[in-house]
Computed example of a mutant assay.
Amino acid sequence: MYNFYRWYPSAKIVFMAPTKPLVAQQIEACYKVMGIPQAHMAELTGSTAAKNRQEVWRSKRIFFLTPQVMVNDLSRDTCPAQKIKCVVIDEAHKALGNHAYCQVIRQLGSQTLQFRILALSATPGGDTKAVQAVISNLLISHIELRSEESPDIQAHSHQRTVEKMVVPLGEALAAHQVRYLQVGTRNSTKLLVFSKLYIFRTNC
């Protein structure tokens, strides 16, 4: 992202996150980590007046927004799609079906293909099919994996001490537990009896 900021002085860079709090968090992180001047960055929300949005897109270089806002600005031609060179997608595993992330990439791709996508996710998917769907929807061609053991991650990781604490149930919860087990035992006993009868009859 920072390289695109340096390489293309007149280009636009988009950083999308699924919620407003995450958007605000990423603005602060980019300012502190990369030192990008705040005067070059802008947060766009649905509450930003329509008459001001075009001027913001014209005068700023890096934009932090939710994908829904990006979809709206692309649909209204408020966003200069041809000038976008880098799209960063946080929580990229959400790019399934007709999610706004998918809509953004489709709309951008229909106007220009001269942009790079950087998709970030700590939980890329529950199975291979879900991961492949994200890869296809976001036009991903290269994947890099990182873990706590990765050399470039260790420098930013803190040592953790994990202590297991078993908290006993209080009287009220213990009473509920007993009643729950009684109900479960009664029903499971009936099921066992029925299953044995069924097995006996099928074997006759």
Rank of each mutant, 00 (worst) to 15 (best):
R106T: 11
K83Q: 12
Q132L: 15
Y101Q: 03
I140V: 04
D73F: 02
L145W: 15
I84G: 01
Q111P: 02
I153L: 02
S150Q: 04
G97M: 12
G97N: 11
T112C: 05
L145E: 10
Q107K: 11
G126C: 15
S157M: 02
R116L: 03
T66Y: 01
Q159G: 03
L138C: 10
K85Q: 10
A172Q: 14
R76I: 09
G109R: 04
E144R: 08
I117S: 00
L139A: 13
G125H: 10
A172R: 10
K85V: 13
Y101L: 07
A81C: 05
D77Q: 10
L138W: 13
M70A: 10
Y101A: 07
H142R: 07
S150M: 06
L145G: 06
M165V: 10
E149L: 06
Q82G: 12
P80R: 04
A92H: 08
S157C: 03
P80C: 09
A122Y: 06
P67M: 05
L118I: 13
H93G: 09
Y101S: 05
H93E: 10
Q82R: 05
P67Q: 05
S121Y: 09
H156W: 00
V162C: 03
L120Y: 11
E171H: 15
H93D: 09
P67N: 03
I143N: 06
Q107L: 14
H99E: 11
A155L: 00
V167C: 14
I135D: 09
I89P: 00
H158I: 02
S147K: 06
V166R: 08
N72I: 03
E144I: 09
V71E: 04
E149Y: 02
F115V: 02
A92L: 14
H158T: 02
S150W: 02
T128P: 06
V87I: 12
E163G: 04
T78I: 08
L138D: 09
K164C: 06
P124V: 11
P151M: 01
N137V: 03
H158Q: 00
V134F: 12
N137C: 05
G170T: 11
D152T: 07
N137Y: 02
K83E: 10
P151S: 00
E149N: 04
R106A: 12
A133N: 08
V162D: 03
S147Y: 06
F115M: 04
S110A: 13
I153E: 01
I105F: 09
T78H: 03
K85E: 06
Q132G: 14
S157T: 05
K85A: 12
V71K: 02
G126Y: 14
P124T: 11
H99I: 11
H142A: 11
L138V: 08
A81D: 01
S157D: 00
P80S: 10
C86F: 14
K164Q: 06
